[in-house]
Simulated assay, not measured.
Amino acid sequence: MEYLVTMTTRVPEGTSAAEVDAVRAREAANSRKLADQGQLLRLWRPPLQPGEWRTLGLFAAPDAARLEDILSSMPLRVWRQDEVEPLSPHPNDPGPASVDASIAAPEFLVTFVVAAPGDAPSQAREDGTTAEAVRAKELAEEGYLVRLWNAPGEGRALGLWRARDAAEMQTLLDSLPLAPWLSMETTPLSEHPNDPGLGRS
Rank of each mutant, 00 (worst) to 15 (best):
R147Y: 00
S102P: 06
T8K: 12
P94G: 12
D195Y: 11
Q81T: 15
L176E: 09
Q37R: 15
S16I: 04
A60Q: 11
N150V: 05
A18S: 15
M184G: 05
L148P: 15
T171I: 02
G159F: 03
L178R: 11
M169D: 08
S102H: 10
D69S: 14
A17D: 12
G153W: 13
A17G: 12
P121M: 05
T6P: 04
G143F: 01
V84K: 05
R162S: 09
A157N: 03
V110L: 10
N30A: 10
G199A: 01
V20K: 00
L43F: 07
L189Y: 12
V146M: 14
A120V: 09
V114W: 07
E138A: 05
W149V: 03
N30L: 14
I70N: 13
T186P: 03
R77G: 00
L43R: 10
G143R: 00
N30I: 02
P196Q: 08
D127G: 06
G38V: 01
S175C: 01
H192K: 05
G143Y: 00
V99T: 11
V23D: 01
R26G: 14
A29R: 14
V11P: 01
S73L: 11
G155H: 11
R80A: 15
F59P: 01
V78A: 15
T55P: 04
D36Q: 14
L58G: 03
L158R: 06
M169W: 07
A140Y: 08
L109W: 08
T8S: 11
D100R: 04
A97P: 05
A133N: 13
A115E: 12
G197L: 05
V23E: 04
W79Q: 11
W181V: 05
W44V: 03
A133W: 11
V134K: 14
A61P: 02
V114C: 02
D82G: 10
R42N: 14
A60I: 03
W161D: 04
G143C: 08
R24M: 15
R125H: 02
V5R: 02
W161Y: 09
T130D: 04
F59V: 05
N194W: 03
Q123S: 09
R10G: 09
P12K: 07
E107F: 14
T186D: 06
A61F: 06
L148N: 06
N194G: 08
P46K: 07
L139R: 03
A167K: 11
S102N: 05
T9M: 09
A120K: 02
S122K: 07
P12S: 07
V110N: 08
Q81W: 06
R80D: 06
E13W: 00
G128I: 05
A104M: 04
D165Q: 08
A115V: 09
E13C: 00
Q170S: 07
V99E: 15
D82C: 13
R26D: 13
V5A: 01
E154T: 14
L139Y: 04
G197R: 13
A60T: 07
E132I: 03
T55E: 06
L172I: 10
L76F: 09
W79V: 01
E132G: 09
A101C: 06
D93Q: 06
D174V: 03
W181D: 01
P106C: 03
P152N: 08
H192Y: 09
D93F: 00
E68P: 01
T6M: 12
L76C: 00
G155F: 04
A29F: 02
P47D: 00
L48Q: 12
F112Y: 11
T6Q: 10
P12R: 09
